[in-house]
Design a protein around this nucleic acid. Structure first.
Lengths: 135, 135
DNA sequence: ATTCTTGCAAACGTTTTGCATTAAT
DNA sequence: ATTAATGCAAAACGTTTGCAAGAAT
């Protein structure tokens, strides 16, 4: 029951919030823009404004329910935070987003930050890739 | 002589282009926004429009003279491309940008992309950090 | 003389906000 | 009843564009 997730983070259980959370859950881990979600709502005759979609997504981000990414300059994309940290690879030809993790890279990052007298608060690693030529 | 750099990449040597290139060179590797450059121009009574700054920066990027980064959602920042690839660390308290390189991380990235059947075209690695507590 | 570049103002796409109304507790 | 959330339209933000005027070759 999504209502519990919302209560847990101190947000009132409203129709827009439940629906948006639901759409993110059903998206199968896809990365959605605010507009994607807005259109999905319209398609189901939910009368929810685009401004509300943005407001709710921002609240979800603050609450730690979703992650926001600014891939290529355009729109931000959102995904449910399922707790497993991962980085992203974007296929430049198809726009497909592939998730990956590398404990090795994470370790090196911490090491580098440490060497400069810092602690990592957050990081963003995105590889923009193209399919390797078959041979 | 910056004029040569411009000619070399097929751009007419105009006042705005020379000045903007000059500002980037004098910036000591700092990352500047289009507005930063625009204000710097105004301060020196150069009557160059903000639109021109954007146009010139885009041309410079296309020509491979500058690199453009989209750190946190806000404005894009530009820096001269001095040919040495590097990644960035952003001090969240001061906004200071520190450059670093790690051949080890680069190698791991290529390895991961390869494992998924891809070749890296480009990548973006940014660490958002805070000073380590003194003890 | 020709071609490219500029300045300005207006347009753009994404995201945020003010405010009166409505819904959740 | 109280407090917070919503819809809408308007504003904000960074950036891009159309076009007539000006500068570089």
């Amino acid at each position: 029951m999504e209502s519990q997730d919302l209560r847990k983070v101190g947000l009132k259980v409203t129709h827009p919030r439940v629906r948006i959370l639901g759409i993110l859950e059903e998206s199968g881990g896809k990365h959605l823009t605010a507009e994607d979600i807005y259109r999905e709502l319209l398609a189901h005759e939910d009368d929810i404004g685009l401004a509300t979609v943005y407001r709710v997504l921002t609240q979800f981000e603050t609450a730690g329910l979703v992650l926001k990414h600014n891939f290529e300059g355009g729109q931000a994309v959102y995904e449910l935070d399922r707790g497993h940290h991962h980085d992203h690879m974007v296929d430049l030809d198809t726009g497909k987003v592939i998730e990956f993790t590398s404990e090795e890279i994470e370790r090196l990052q911490r090491e580098i930050a440490d060497r400069h007298g810092y602690v990592i608060e957050e990081h963003s690693l995105v590889l923009y890739v193209r399919p390797k030529r078959k041979r």
